[in-house]
């Protein structure tokens, strides 16, 4: 479901979520940008659409924050590509963000489907 309405509030949301998704993807092993994009799209059953321009900026941002590191390598089909891998700091960040996210979605769920539970 490509959502491309450029609402500033939504970009903030997108940035935050995209970062987590990238970190999660890299948890499985080093990967290049195109692979990350494919992987996110596939794993979300094509629900999430990754804007490639934003993806590379996000990768760069994560790299700047030392959550991931990159080096040039060769892909399975012998293409030169820039491979990203998770750092220890990135791993910790992922854990932190994941638990936050889970609590947030749970809270959202509580609100959006309130009759399941009575607080």
């Amino acid at each position: 479901m490509p959502t491309q309405e450029n609402n500033d509030d939504r970009i903030a949301l997108l940035q935050g979520t995209l970062d987590i998704l990238i970190l999660k993807t890299l948890l499985l092993g080093p990967c290049h940008g195109q692979g990350v994009a494919r992987s996110i799209q596939r794993q979300s059953e094509e629900v999430l659409f990754v804007d490639h321009g934003s993806l590379y900026l996000a990768l760069q941002r994560l790299e700047d924050k030392k959550f991931i590191q990159a080096k040039w390598g060769v892909s399975e089909n012998n293409r030169k590509a820039r491979f990203y891998s998770l750092t220890a700091k990135g791993r910790a960040e992922l854990l932190d963000k994941t638990s936050q996210w889970k609590r947030l979605t749970r809270a959202m769920g509580l609100i959006l489907e309130p009759r399941n539970e009575e607080s």
Binding site: H32, G33, Q34, G35, R38, Y56, Q60, E63, D64, A81
Partner: peptide, 26 residues
């Protein structure tokens, strides 16, 4: 912030690689 700044060429190279990888897959 990073000690050695990444060059624009390096980034262009990465984009080119991405397009090739994507085309391969398609």
């Amino acid at each position: 912030m990073s000690k050695h700044k990444r060059s624009a060429e390096d980034f262009a190279e990465e984009v080119r690689a991405h397009l090739e990888l994507e085309a391969d897959e398609l």
